[in-house]
């Protein structure tokens, strides 16, 4: 059986690579810690991997806007490698700072040509500061995003100061929704599934006051996916926020399904 190979990017203040590698390994893949410069200098090639993950962290200290400088390193230093990777139908995920990187470099929400043109951004939370708290996420069951197949709701932590998803042109939001790109949003856990409202939910249900409660988006192909919350931080039941209050069988956490989806996609679509 083929074992998908995952390039988990590292360096310059990325700091969630350990757990990001762990969740892919738990899902049956082989994950490598890949310093961005090893791709830039040609020591390693993205082509040799099936999945690229840009983990969370504080690349370049979030200075000049979160994800901006790392996005530029990829946009200027790895432009064609990244474009070819995406065009060859391989999954990419950006989590938290990784999501910010993908948005700032224009890979998300992205376009069919993978032109790397920025169309959205992640602004400072309305609270004005960084926060670590748990949120409930709801997934668009209609979306073709390969990462979120079959998902409804999960509970995961958010840990960011700049996670408010915004655009310059609000009509884009409708286009993205039609295209199934608005994959995941913050939701009031006491509401019925599915929750249809676009109204910005009160703080802290929406921790950052993101437009339409958007927590994550995918590109038109559904292969590139990014989100502010941290599914990799809920890889095991004992990491939940309220697990000591729940009567549960211990095992895999609610965030794992995302990584399993991608690993399954690769094993189904690639021979090697």
């Amino acid at each position: 059986m083929m074992i998908p190979r995952v390039a988990v990017l590292s360096g310059f203040g990325i700091n969630c690579e350990t757990e990001t590698m762990a969740v892919f390994e738990m899902a049956g893949a082989k994950a490598d810690r890949v310093h961005v410069n090893r791709l830039v200098n040609g020591e390693l090639n993205l082509e040799d991997y099936h999945i690229m993950a840009v983990p969370g962290g504080f690349s370049f200290g979030d200075h000049l806007g979160s994800g901006r400088l790392m996005g530029n390193r990829l946009r200027f230093g790895l432009r064609e490698q990244v474009r070819n990777f995406v065009k060859s139908g391989k999954p990419v995920i950006g989590i938290c700072n990784g999501f910010q990187v993908l948005v700032k470099m224009g890979l998300l929400p992205g376009d069919d040509d993978v032109s790397l043109t920025q169309t959205a951004s992640l602004a400072l939370n309305d609270s004005g500061h960084y926060e670590n708290r748990w949120a409930t996420l709801e997934f668009d069951s209609q979306s073709h995003c390969i990462w979120t197949k079959g998902m409804t709701r999960i509970r995961v932590p958010v840990r960011h100061g700049e996670g408010k998803f915004v655009t310059a042109d609000k009509s884009l939001l409708d286009d993205w929704r039609e295209a199934g790109q608005l994959v995941v949003k913050y939701v009031d856990p006491s509401s019925e599934y599915p929750s249809s409202s676009d109204e910005v939910l009160p703080y802290p249900i929406s921790p950052n006051q993101s437009w339409r409660n958007i927590a994550g988006v995918c590109d038109p192909s559904g292969l590139v996916f990014g989100l502010m919350p941290h599914p990799e931080a809920n890889h095991s039941t004992w990491l939940g926020a309220t697990w000591t209050r729940e009567d549960i069988e211990h095992g895999e956490g609610e965030g794992m399904i995302i990584f399993r989806n991608a690993v399954n996609y690769v094993t189904e679509n690639f021979d090697n």
Partner: peptide, 20 residues
């Protein structure tokens, strides 16, 4: 405003309870 969960290892966190 401190990250208390990076590294995905935090079992008993600074906050607990139904409302965290």
């Amino acid at each position: 405003s401190y990250d208390h969960e990076v590294i995905a290892q935090s079992v008993i966190k600074p906050f607990c309870g139904v409302n965290h």
